[in-house]
Structure formats: structure tokens, C-alpha cells
Nucleic acid binder design. Structure first.
Lengths: 341, 341
DNA sequence: TATATATTTGGAAACGTTTGCAATCAAGAG
DNA sequence: CTCTTGATTGCAAACGTTTCCAAATATATA
């Protein structure tokens, strides 16, 4: 009894099976991998013994010879940010279906932590990477990335030869602004996160485009940048009206910001959406809560994750690196109308 | 130029370095790992060449000989559920600091998907596992788990020899109920998720304990079970009052449920907290939003994640499996009072 | 029955490291 | 100048697989 337990504790290898069944371990390998060319009866004996020994193939050893690990890395800023769990879930589901596992890496928005992670992941010989980069990729980062297939998610601004999946942020910004204008909520303001973010720039471009198309003046006093935190939205809207800049509508670059805007507006006695209509971007789970009911531009987050790994796996599948054409997938944003605008 | 690129594309190995520097690859290995006993000048030359070749140690090969991968698995029901991102983050941070990577696995609450994952992870030879199991562990699962160190998170009901970190659910339930009673919100109801969940049972026990201590009757009509979805909370509270069962306070087994309860209550014209006070459990990020402002029992989610891997790594550190004593860490729940009660 | 062919098996190298042991080397002691 | 000693180095095995190639065996063909 005791002995039995101990035996089952230490991992049996292919050699153990070979020794017991009295065949070469080449044969055992073939049997275990359902390769043709092993006599049914032999195969049966091997499988039985494997089962009896509680044999688990050693993926490490296999990885060494096959030069692939069936693992991919998912590098995101922060799983705690409500935008990412869904894309992570999409990534994970798609990976799992294809027999891949995924390493979760939070960069915490830190450039060097991101770099260290990528370094680590390449050391672990992941077969590929899906990454939502902290910011514009640096040269150092590029150097690493050259040795492993990668698809970017939620960014477009990357080296010309890389694949990515994202949504049409310009269009999203346009849709948001357009709604505000058409419902008479002018002038409409824009409150965004960091100014140098490409995502922001695109959404801002959509905003300006809509303004132009509908013959609205573009007034810089109505556009502000801070960071992606909720408090920022609250602070900025209050500051704005304090300065006498009084929009009737505001487009928040993301939902957290937009929710903050609503909260700030309420604090100074503005009714939503009568006095101030606000629309956000992302459609995080929170947005749909009755208490919040935020009108917003939805991103198909889960699908973005899925598509990213689908592209990645296709890329991994082709042995001839470099011959694989860059894939760009730009998904459609979707206006979902709730009570805030 | 072209040639250079190609060279840097294929991974240089220790042998390449050895060949160029003209030493044995044993020496290269020693140099790269900062082992003593290699002449400073030799080490320098090796390090330089490694850098020049853009050498990345192959963790797979290393793992094969050292029999450890510096990877752990994180097996949770669903990263999309607001409870888990924080613990995942804690796990990841602690792991990262110790040089470990973490595989993210969503079981989607499916027993067999959980099993498949654990099978996969053991095949990949993770050094350990932190797992929030779908339900009571099965025999099959136990068999796998015996071959790898594991610490459970957010559960207590497991084999006597396993480690876990969780919070004192009984106490949490008690705290919640006590608050309701002391603020005069009696009778107080309990609305929970699946009846056979151990977590629920513990929180329910706390509820009953408090009732008893404060000489309140325990009336089964005031306790209901459904699932952990928000809608359930909403439906159940409405159903309750429809049946003439009219609590003044209700303890929702988790925040989602509690928020649902609030929403349902509002729909039928109840004022929160005047007509109905509600307290939840978990303190998910949402709970603190002004629009929600849910009084709840907070779990130190991030810390749970951290502690889990700290215990795990300590366990991994000792070579003599079996000699490591089971670790139980039961964290304190924390009442955070907001507007809903 | 002998030969050709197909099926099943085994041997051995390879994947990229780490590490115990023995060999070499430089230098200090006598 | 030789002997000891300690610091450096190299050799080779090992980790657990996969896979190429050849050997062995069985089956079909003539």
C-alpha cells in the first residue's frame, strides 16, 4: 500500500513503460502518440501499462525536441482593469480549444516590466505572444519580438510587419460625438486619458471629424487630457464648468472616465442626461448596470481576444516565418444607447 | 545585413557561444549562471559573446535537467467574474517577484474542464498549483493533485493534508447579520447561491449564529437559494415580498446577488436602506461606486492571491515532499459600511 | 518454396541544458 | 627546480522525449 503510493508519486516515464512491456521506448512513444505502425495488440498493452502507472507525458521533454511548447503569452497592462478580463477570457478560450496554455502577464503599465516579461517568455520558448503594449513599442522590445510570432491587440500603431486586432477607434469616436450632436447636446466636450496614447488620438480624431461634418466649431477649451482614472473624469468636468466652459454633452474616452464625469456632474447639481449627456467607450460590464446606465461605444472584447489567438495560431502553423503576411483585423465599434445620452 | 538578421533570428545556444569563445560549453553554462570557479576574464568574454548573439537561455532544456519549470498554474472558475481578477493579480505579482510565471486557466465552473486543465498542467510540469476549485474535489482530481504541490484559495473543504488560504466566512456572515439586527432591520433574510456550496454554508452558519445570539427566530421562509447571478437577487426579493414575507434587512451571499436585491427592491418601490437594508459579501470594485454604495463584507482578495503563492513557493522549496506541514491561512473579513445598510 | 513487399520493431542520435568528476594549469612553498 | 594546492577547465552523462534509419518479422506474390 505504502509502496504503491510512493510509486505512483514519482512520475513514470516512457522508459519505465518500455521496460515493463518489454519493447523499445521508440515503440512506446509511437503507441502513445497514436502513430500508425504499431501492432494493435502491442499498443493495447502499452496503453494499459501507461494507465496503470498513471503516466503523464513530459511536455518539457517533448517541447525540447519538437521545439514548441504549446504555450503562448498574454501580456496586458492589468487584469484588474475591467477592460481586460474579457479579452483574456477570449484568448484563453481560443487557446484552450487548440490545446494551448496561456501565461498571464500584467505589466502594470510599466515599460520595463513589460520588457522583462517578454524576455522571460521568450526564454520559456512560448510559441507566440498576444500583447496589449503599454505604449509605443521601443527598439529593445522590437528586438525580442522578432524572435517570436506576435499579434497586438487593441493597438494599431506598430511596426509595419506585425499583425494586430483592434477596433475602429476613429469611427467609434465619430459615432459617440454624432449622437451627442444629433440629440442637440452641443457644444460637446471631449475628456480623455493620456494625450500621447494612440487610442486617444484616434478617438479624438473621430470626435473632431464629427464636429466638422456637422459644422460645429472645434474649440480647444472643450477638450482635456488627464489619465484613465475615474476621478479624473469627475475632476475635469467640475473644473470645466467652473471655468465657465459649459458643454451640454461630453464624450469620455473610456467608460471609467465617463462614469467619473457623470458622478462629478451630479455632484454639482447637473441632471443626466438633461443638463449633460455623456457617452463613454468600451462598454465595460459596469456600464450596463441600471444605476449607471451609460451610453457607450462597445468593443467586442471577447472576440478581440479570440481573433488574436486565431491569427496567432495560424501564424505559428506556418513553418516559414516571414512568408506569413501581416494580418490586420479592425472590428466595428457599436453604439449602445442607454440612459446617459 | 540580410545575413545578420537571419543569424539573430535563430536562437543561439550555449554551444554556439562555446564554439566562438573556444571553451567547453560546461564553462559557458557556469559563466552564464554566475557560478564560481570561472576566470573573470573568461566570464567576461563569454558574457560579451552571449550579448552579441542575443542569447536567451532555453528554459525548456534547463527545466528538463533541473526538473523544475518555474511556472505555476492558476485554476479559477472565470476571470470575468469580478472576484477573481484581484486574486489573480495577487498571485501574479507574488509569482513574478519570485521569478515564476503563471498559467491562467478558466474552468468555466465545469468539473471536467477543470480536470482537463490540471491534467494539462501536470503534463507541462508546473511546479505548483493554486486553485479555486469548482466544487468539492473528486477522487480523480485528487489523484492528479497528489503529484504536484497545491494550495487552495477561497475554499476550506478539502482533503486534510492540503494547504489553503481563505477567509472566515462564518464570521463574515455573522458580521453582516449582526449589523442588520443592531440597526433594527429585522427580520433579516438570507439570499444565497447554490445550496451545496461550502462557502454558502459557512456564511449561512454565521447568519444563523447571529440570529441566535440576538434572540431572533430562524425562519426558513426567510432564506432562499438560487445561483450567484445578479438577476437571482432581484427575482428572489420580489418573490419574497409577493409571498408576504417581508424582511427589513437582507444579507446577500455575495455582492452581485446583493446588488440584484437592491435593484429588485427598488423596482417594487422599496427605499434603500429605509425600507430594506442590504449587505453583500466580497466587496467587488463595483460595490464602492457611489451609485451602488453597497455595504458589504470585504475579502482581502489581492492578499489571498499573494499568500497562496507564498505558501506554495515555500512548499516547493522543500525537497522532501510530505514532510511539509499543511498550511491553513484564514484571513479576517472586514465590514465596510456604505449606504445600503 | 523462394522472393518481394509491407508491417512492426529497435538502435541511436538529437533537442539544449546542468553537473560530477577528472584533467590541466598557475602559482606558492620548500 | 620540484611538489602541493587551489583555481579553472573539459568530458561525458543525464534529463524524457521524438524520429530517422535499419533490422526483423510477417504477409502476399509468383
Amino acid at each position: 500500500m505504502q509502496t504503491f503510493t510512493i510509486i505512483s508519486l514519482m512520475d513514470a516515464t516512457i522508459k519505465d513503460i518500455a521496460r515493463i512491456v518489454k519493447v523499445s521506448y521508440a515503440t512506446v512513444s509511437r503507441a502513445l502518440n497514436n502513430k500508425h505502425g504499431v501492432k494493435p495488440e502491442t499498443r493495447k498493452r502499452i496503453l494499459e501499462e501507461a494507465r496503470r502507472l498513471n503516466y503523464r507525458p513530459n511536455a518539457i521533454a517533448r517541447g525540447l525536441v519538437k521545439k514548441q511548447t504549446h504555450s503562448i503569452g498574454l501580456v496586458i497592462p492589468d487584469i484588474t482593469n475591467p477592460f481586460y478580463p474579457e479579452v483574456a477570457r477570449g484568448v484563453e478560450d481560443a487557446a484552450q480549444e487548440a490545446g494551448y496554455s496561456v501565461f498571464l502577464c500584467n505589466t502594470n503599465w510599466e515599460k520595463d516590466r513589460e520588457l522583462r516579461y517578454i524576455e522571460l517568455l521568450t526564454s520559456k520558448r512560448v510559441d507566440g505572444l498576444v500583447i496589449a503594449p503599454v505604449s509605443e513599442t521601443t527598439e529593445a522590445l522590437q528586438r525580442f519580438l522578432r524572435s517570436v510570432p506576435v499579434v497586438y491587440v487593441s493597438t494599431t500603431s506598430v511596426a509595419a510587419h506585425e499583425s494586430y486586432v483592434t477596433i475602429d477607434n476613429v469611427k467609434g469616436g465619430y459615432l459617440a460625438t454624432e449622437l451627442l450632436i444629433r440629440t442637440g447636446k452641443t457644444p460637446v466636450a471631449f475628456i480623455g486619458s493620456e494625450e500621447d496614447s494612440h487610442t486617444l488620438q484616434e478617438r479624438l480624431e473621430g470626435y473632431k471629424q464629427a464636429l466638422k461634418d456637422y459644422h460645429q466649431p472645434v474649440d480647444e477649451r472643450y477638450v482635456r487630457f488627464g489619465n484613465f482614472k475615474r476621478e479624473t473624469g469627475s475632476r475635469f468636468i467640475k473644473k470645466m464648468v467652473l471655468e465657465g466652459v459649459k458643454p451640454k454633452g461630453v464624450f469620455g474616452e473610456n467608460d471609467l472616465l465617463a462614469i467619473g464625469i457623470i458622478q462629478g456632474a451630479k455632484e454639482i447639481g447637473l441632471a443626466i442626461p438633461e443638463d449633460l449627456a455623456v457617452v463613454g467607450f468600451d462598454d465595460i460590464p459596469l456600464a450596463s448596470f441600471p444605476e449607471i446606465s451609460l451610453t457607450t461605444i462597445a468593443q467586442p472584447k471577447y472576440e478581440m481576444g479570440r481573433y488574436a489567438v486565431e491569427i496567432l495560431l495560424k501564424r505559428i502553423g506556418v513553418e516559414d516565418t516571414g512568408s506569413f503576411p501581416r494580418q490586420r483585423l479592425i472590428l466595428e465599434p457599436n453604439l449602445v444607447r442607454r440612459k446617459s445620452a
